[in-house]
Design a protein around this nucleic acid. Structure first.
Lengths: 206, 206
DNA sequence: GTCTATACTAGGATAGAC
DNA sequence: GTCTATCCTAGTATAGAC
């Protein structure tokens, strides 16, 4: 297991991620990936047995960041801190992993045909924990009586949209690339609406 | 232009919409569409000159509902009524046109490679009108000073998610199909968060 | 350990039979 | 106006040369 092997695998994975994000699974050709990093097509098959396996690697590389994002729900005992950090983290992910996010979105959009069952299980668990925590806060009257799952759906959608539908975002912001400032405004706007909208006091001690 | 022709075209379009939604553009084979409606493969080519043209028809069939959804911004002079109706309309679209919505989402996800320029132009115009109206309401202090574009991004994302990422929604709601009641809860939750979150009074006359 | 040549199949599209 | 047979390109994958 040479260092060259690891390096080339990483290179292929990175190119594959970009291509799968741009074209989708079916739309991506191994030749496209090979061309992008100036490698012979057959070389890809030398490092990854099949297109399917290469795709799975790309897909799974996004799971860790995704699961990490729910940490604030464990970490904090107040919805203000938890939701603020969760939104920040999720928009950071959209900013830093736009391609992996698109690959994942594409996967979900088509009914998750390539997503391994153990990952699905983990996602369900994380969601249960987060929604249970929200329900606790509702019971303690730290926030309004909002359906926790639908709140989560809203948060996922509004944060991921900055990666997944960036074409549309850029179109309306009239810029070729989203700037750091755009992400800041997105984050601040969302935090503001969500906290106030859920009746969450930003004073930690009441 | 026989009635039979129109009927068959409609049948093909409907099957194509489902397939394109499920598999994406590249992932859909003409044979799949043909098989679904028990028509010989070549027959599809008799009614639609190419896969590309068939896809464009599916895509464009969704533009009208999409543009209609912004009507509340023209129709009402108060953000409470406009945003309430807008959210209702958008979630209705997710409920009634889940497949077309997915096809459109897929298109945007991949940078809109098949979306005709005149449609892009129309979408920009609608967005400008809606965000201008929001800005007016902000200036009149009918709502908080929220960035209008980012508010729109949030609204699009959180309403479309019920069509585009329905796999995920169903997974967490633990049901095979979303029920009418789920859409109602989604609508009510979102309206509640957005109106309160934007500081919009639900009393029309203040 | 890396690249070339090539096998094999799928799928878009068409020509022409009926 | 509808279906069959077929062409042809493109794309996954492999066997084997170097």
């Amino acid at each position: 297991m040479s260092r060259i092997r690891n390096k080339k695998q990483a290179l292929i994975l990175s190119a594959a991620c970009e291509e799968f994000a741009k074209q989708g699974y079916a739309g991506t050709k191994i030749a496209d990936i090979a061309a992008k990093i100036e490698l012979p097509k057959a070389n890809i098959y030398y490092y990854f047995k099949s297109k399917e396996i290469l795709y799975r690697h790309v897909l799974e590389s996004f799971i860790q960041p995704l699961l990490m994002a729910t940490q604030p729900f464990d970490q904090y005992d107040h919805p203000a801190a938890a939701l603020t950090d969760f939104i920040k983290l999720k928009i950071e992910i959209s900013k830093n992993h736009p391609n992996a996010s698109k690959v994942f979105a594409n996967e979900i959009l088509h009914g998750a045909p390539h997503l391994p069952p153990d990952i699905i299980e983990k996602l369900i668990q994380q969601t249960c924990l987060a929604s249970a925590k929200l329900q606790q806060w509702i019971d303690k009257e730290l926030m309004d009586d909002i359906d926790p799952l639908h709140l989560l759906f809203m948060l996922w959608a509004s944060t991921q949209t900055y990666a997944d539908f960036s074409w549309q975002i850029k179109l309306h912001l009239k810029s070729d690339e989203m700037q750091a400032q755009d992400f800041e405004v997105a984050t601040d706007t969302l935090i503001k609406i969500v906290l106030k909208g859920c009746g969450i006091s930003t004073q930690m001690a009441e």
